[in-house]
């Protein structure tokens, strides 16, 4: 069962490729916040879990995908919603805090601009 996440709260986007990090200043590139060609962007809510649990979910995602967990970038859900997107909880057996960012434009250039806006508000890379 899913429901829309109301109010604020931090969301973590796990970074599983070095291509999404600017090594010059540890910022995260907009590409990390683009769902295209899909319609949802996978994130994990901070709410109700410890930092250790947050990293544990990240390691689990990386392990499932046979990738390296480079870190995470946090963004406040209010910044997501300010861009006319919604955050919908989508718990999985491994990650009860899993959520999706939905409501993306089908026009790629518009999606890119929203990704620029999200990357502007998101935290620098936080290393595990």
């Amino acid at each position: 069962m899913t429901d829309e996440v109301a109010g604020g709260g931090l969301l973590a986007r796990y970074i599983l490729t070095r291509r999404h990090i600017r090594s010059s200043n540890d910022t995260v590139k907009p590409e990390a916040f683009m769902p295209h060609p899909y319609i949802d962007l996978s994130v994990t809510r901070h709410k109700g879990i410890t930092v250790d649990q947050l990293w544990s979910h990240g390691r689990s995602v990386a392990e499932q995908q046979s990738k390296t967990l480079y870190g995470r970038s946090d963004i406040d859900s209010s910044d997501v919603m300010a861009n006319k997107l919604t955050v919908q909880s989508d718990p999985t057996p491994e990650n009860p805090n899993h959520a999706n960012i939905l409501g993306w434009s089908g026009v790629k250039s518009e999606q890119k601009l929203v990704a620029l806006e999200l990357a502007k508000k998101a935290s620098k890379i936080i290393y595990p």
Binding site: K29, E31, H36, K112, K120
Partner: peptide
């Protein structure tokens, strides 16, 4: 850089407020 749909992207960046992709 590269985007999740497999398209190459070029970026001119000075800060999050001065960026072209």
């Amino acid at each position: 850089s590269i985007e999740p749909d497999g398209e190459i992207s070029f970026e001119w960046y000075r800060s999050a407020s001065r960026i072209l992709s």
